[in-house]
Each structure stands twice: as structure tokens, then as C-alpha cells.
């Protein structure tokens, strides 16, 4: 699975690819190694946010000027990377948020509702209204990747990044992206489903009082 994603990214352009295996029990890590990309492995599962943060730190260690984060389940189309990095390359902004199309047929209805709730919660708690607060397909300038600092480990990471954008007065733009809901991405147990969505909401509220 991850091999397909890596090959797609390679086909889309010349990028340094970093794969973070977040304590998975399948062959993801070895598949990534076989593809001769930078493979990093969390010995235990720490969540999407923790894995993304590890990947960003690793990218900075490699001297990346622009860091693009994307999910490893194949739902993001690497041909969108160019559109994501363009505003940063032109100096237009520090962060680019990929926005998934929220129309029936392109996104499951339940996801559209969940996404809208996520956007409202993010706006209420963190002060910025964005079109897709839960998208993991984003691009950061080196400055933004350095200054954004959140301890969120799970799915609330994406919303906490919005908070960091607001707190640090970073400039951002939203870019439409394509999304493909594969059987794998819809069936994985760790996906941001209804129950995980509730848990994310609780963690966001809890983060305000702790």
C-alpha cells in the first residue's frame, strides 16, 4: 500500500520522501525501506499528530525549505503537491491548507457533516474559520514548520495547527485538493470516524482546561 503512494509521489515530481510508520504491525516500514525512501518507525503507536510531527522534524533535519504532509493511505493525490507548494515558493504565505471537495459524490455524506462540525469547533476554540480543518494534506514553509509547536498526538493535531497559525499570526491560503476514498482508507480502524471524532472533540476541550 505505502509502496503505491511512494511511487505516485515519485511520478509527481522530485521530492525527498519521508515515511513515518506509527507503530504499525504490518509491513509498512519494510515496504518503505524497500522503496529506498527515508523510513522512520515509532516503536509504539502514538497517533496521527505525533507521527506528523516526527516527520516534520525529520524533514527539517534534512534541510527542507518546504514541508508537505500527506496521509499514507492513498487518499491524497500527489499531483496536488505542486499546487500546495506554489504559494509558499512565491512568498505568498507560510502555510497552505489542502481543502477537500465537500460535495456529495466526492466525499461521503457523513464525512461532510463531520467536517463541517470540525470546522465550527475549530473556529469556536481557535478563532479561525477554514474550509477543511481536518485535512492532513498541507504545506509549511521552514519558518512555519519551526514555529508551529503543538503537543497534540492524535487527530486534534490538525485543528491545533490552525490554533498555532492564529497564535503565531502566520499567513495561510487554502488550496482545493483532490481526494480518493479507497477501501483501505475507509476501513482502517484508526480513521477519524464518529467515535474518534467525539474523542477528538473531548481532547480539544480538555486541552483548554489542562
Amino acid at each position: 500500500m505505502i509502496g503505491d503512494v511512494i511511487r505516485e509521489i515519485r511520478a509527481a515530481g522530485k521530492y525527498t520522501i519521508i515515511v513515518v510508520d506509527d507503530g504499525s504491525r504490518d509491513a509498512t516500514y519494510f515496504e518503505a525501506l524497500a522503496e529506498r525512501v527515508v523510513a522512520i518507525r515509532h516503536k509504539i503507536n502514538r497517533g496521527k499528530g505525533a507521527a506528523t510531527k516526527t516527520g516534520i522534524i525529520a524533514a527539517k533535519k534534512f534541510g527542507a525549505e518546504i514541508v508537505v504532509t500527506m496521509d499514507g493511505d492513498g487518499q491524497h493525490d500527489p499531483t496536488d503537491i505542486e499546487a500546495l507548494v506554489a504559494p509558499i515558493q512565491s512568498g505568498q504565505c507560510d502555510v497552505v491548507l489542502g481543502c477537500r471537495p465537500k460535495v456529495r459524490g466526492e466525499m461521503p455524506f457523513i464525512k461532510i457533516i463531520a467536517n463541517k462540525i470540525g470546522n465550527i469547533v475549530t473556529w469556536l476554540f481557535y478563532g479561525i474559520h477554514v474550509s477543511d480543518s481536518q485535512s492532513g494534506f498541507r504545506a509549511y514553509s521552514r519558518f512555519a514548520a519551526t514555529i508551529i509547536d503543538t503537543k497534540a498526538d492524535k487527530y486534534e493535531y490538525d485543528s491545533k495547527v490552525i490554533r498555532e497559525i492564529n497564535n503565531n499570526r502566520l499567513s495561510f491560503v487554502e488550496v482545493p485538493i483532490k481526494v480518493r476514498y479507497t477501501e483501505y482508507s475507509m476501513g482502517k480502524p484508526q480513521k477519524q470516524g464518529f467515535i474518534n471524532g467525539i474523542k477528538t472533540l473531548i481532547r480539544i476541550v480538555w486541552g483548554l482546561v489542562v
Binding site: T16, G23, V38, H42, K43, T54, I57, I66
Partner: peptide, 29 residues
């Protein structure tokens, strides 16, 4: 703290994680 420890442990193998030259160093990820 567990996340931070896990991250540090994972990143400590960063040199091993680079089997030869990956894809050239340009844009990140």
C-alpha cells in the same frame, strides 16, 4: 512524555533510515 521519547528514539535512527541517497534533497516530505 511517551510520545516525545518515542519520537526521539525513532529520530535517533535517522541516519540508518537513509539507505543511500533517497530521492535527492529538494522539497520536503
Amino acid at each position: 512524555n511517551i510520545s516525545e521519547l518515542t519520537r526521539r528514539e525513532a529520530l535517533s535512527h535517522l541516519d540508518e533510515a537513509l539507505p543511500g541517497d533517497p530521492d535527492g534533497h529538494g522539497k520536503g516530505k
